[in-house]
C-alpha cells in the first residue's frame, strides 16, 4: 500500500502533466518548450512508479519502465539542445515562430 491514497498521487502527477502542457503550448522559446516537455515526462514516470506499488504483477517492471523514461528524457534533452544550438547559430534566434526553415 502507498502511504497516501493512490488517487492523490495520480491527481498530483496529472497536475504536473497539465502544467507541462500549458508550458508547451504557451512558450515562445524553444528551450521553454523543452523544459515543459521534461515536466510531462517526469509526470509519466511518476505514474509508473505509483502503479508499481499497487497494480498486480507490477512490482519491478513499473520501476524499470520509469528508468527507461528517464533515459529517454535524457536522450531527448541532449538531442533537443543540440538542435536548439544549431538553430540559434544559423538564425540567431530560438523563438519558435522564427524557425520556419521547413515551412512551405
Amino acid at each position: 500500500m502507498t502511504p497516501v491514497p493512490e488517487s492523490h498521487y495520480l491527481i498530483f502527477s496529472l497536475i504536473l502533466f497539465s502544467a507541462g502542457i500549458f508550458g508547451a503550448l504557451t512558450r515562445r522559446n524553444a528551450l521553454g518548450v523543452l523544459i515543459a516537455l521534461e515536466l510531462m515526462l517526469n509526470a509519466v514516470a511518476l505514474n509508473f512508479v505509483i502503479f508499481s506499488r499497487t497494480a498486480p504483477e507490477g512490482s519491478a517492471s513499473g520501476q524499470v519502465s520509469a528508468f527507461f523514461i528517464i533515459a529517454l528524457a535524457a536522450a531527448g534533452a541532449a538531442a533537443g539542445l543540440a538542435i536548439v544550438l544549431a538553430v540559434y547559430r544559423s538564425r540567431k534566434s530560438i523563438q519558435t515562430d522564427d524557425t520556419n526553415l521547413l515551412k512551405w
Binding site: 499497487t54 498486480p56 507490477g58
Partner: peptide, 12 residues
C-alpha cells in the same frame, strides 16, 4: 476502479 494487488506489492 484500478486493479490492486491485495495488500500492495512487495518492494523490489
Amino acid at each position: 476502479n484500478w486493479p490492486a494487488a491485495p495488500g500492495g506489492n512487495p518492494l523490489p
